[in-house]
Design a protein around this nucleic acid. Structure first.
Lengths: 205, 205
DNA sequence: TAGATTGTTAATCGATTAACAATC
DNA sequence: TAGATTGTTAATCGATTAACAATC
């Protein structure tokens, strides 16, 4: 069965916790109670989640840390290489280009695009910035499925339409727009305003 | 009653949708069914949410768009000015400094800090970068409640401890670390890996 | 064996949806 | 008035938690 988003998020938390823990002190196994304690989750939930991705524990011992990390990475698809294009090399786009953690998740930005003629041809973080006109041919030629969208709001829907028309299957949307796309295309919004709303509301209390 | 995070997120979606809609075509009122249709939410849910923030609709007419936007902004606390400090002026920190949408939500970055002596004293996006040593006195003096954390992972917990010790009430965490803080301090994580996990999983299917 | 931990079924809880009387 | 929409109560659904037999 397709895993729900909340489950995916918990799996990520398990993985991050175990990575951090083993980095400082190598351990072979861990119990659901230990993980639950650390992450403030019910131990049964941990076991359910592990069961959902096919992990089997050992009675009186717990789970192999190595197995857990492996299983999460496999289920998530981090062991598969995902080439991506990045569109819009402004401040944020530039910051993402230099983000060092992507390859850990199988993500590699293979080409970057911008509509500003002053930028095209120039180099940024090891990438030559291409003209937005070459976006569609590039995606088609290299069979790209993922686009990282960092354009100004005004053009984000137009670009999204183009991406969809040429077969993109997921858009990582860093622009503050609700994009309209067909149901088979995933849009993951990183609206900064969502985080801000939680913070502002908390500070008001 | 304190609003749940899912409710806050829906309120933000309503607000964004109404802002976008009225920007292109001014309308006075809107029904819960119209909003529900556009955002793929149950109309009853919309009315429940509106009721929760004290909005009253008009039978056979719907809700005043203006009222809805106003109520959301008030409930969220966007009408209150929230001064914040930003710590770590790397790529991401720099990008956030130039983000133009913050003042809309009452957020204003009043000071920026970095531990790199080569950076301190220099100017970035209109801010003079201060030494990390002046962080605590600054927060105390100006009674700052919010910190935006963009430091390297290695120091993020240390800085968080310092922030907590000096009375910070919310940390907007852009570093990939699970911060440990007292229960009254809100940590909002912008782990980029969460978004990435959803995308990688979708692309795998 | 004894005891701790898993894996699973049942119970609870909360959130979403349906139904419908009240309202404009 | 008639009819559409709200506001609220009841029903459903799904997710979380509790209980406990099976397992190592």
């Amino acid at each position: 069965m397709r895993l729900k988003r909340v489950v995916l998020e918990r799996l990520m938390r398990y993985h991050r916790f175990l990575s951090q823990t083993t980095a400082s002190k190598p351990i072979q196994t861990i119990t659901s109670a230990q993980i639950a304690e650390a992450l403030d989750i019910d131990p049964t939930q941990v076991r359910k989640d592990f069961g959902a991705i096919g992990l089997v524990g050992i009675g009186r011992v717990g789970y192999q840390v190595e197995d857990v990390c492996c299983a999460v990475r496999t289920v998530m698809g981090f062991d598969k290489e995902n080439p991506a294009v990045l569109i819009g090399v402004g401040q944020l786009g530039g910051a993402l280009l230099t983000y060092p953690g992507f390859e850990k998740y199988g993500l590699s930005i293979t080409a970057v695009f911008d509509s500003d003629p002053a930028k095209t041809g120039r180099s940024k973080a090891g990438h030559t910035i291409r003209s937005i006109r070459s976006l569609k041919p590039y995606i088609r030629k290299h069979d790209i499925m993922l686009a990282i969208l960092c354009t100004p709001v005004e053009v984000s829907q137009t670009i999204a339409d183009r991406l969809v028309s040429v077969g993109i299957k997921a858009i990582w949307n860093f622009t503050p727009t609700d994009l309209a796309v067909p149901p088979d295309v995933l849009v993951r919004d990183e609206h900064i305003s969502l985080g801000l709303s939680e913070i502002a509301y908390h500070l008001k209390q």
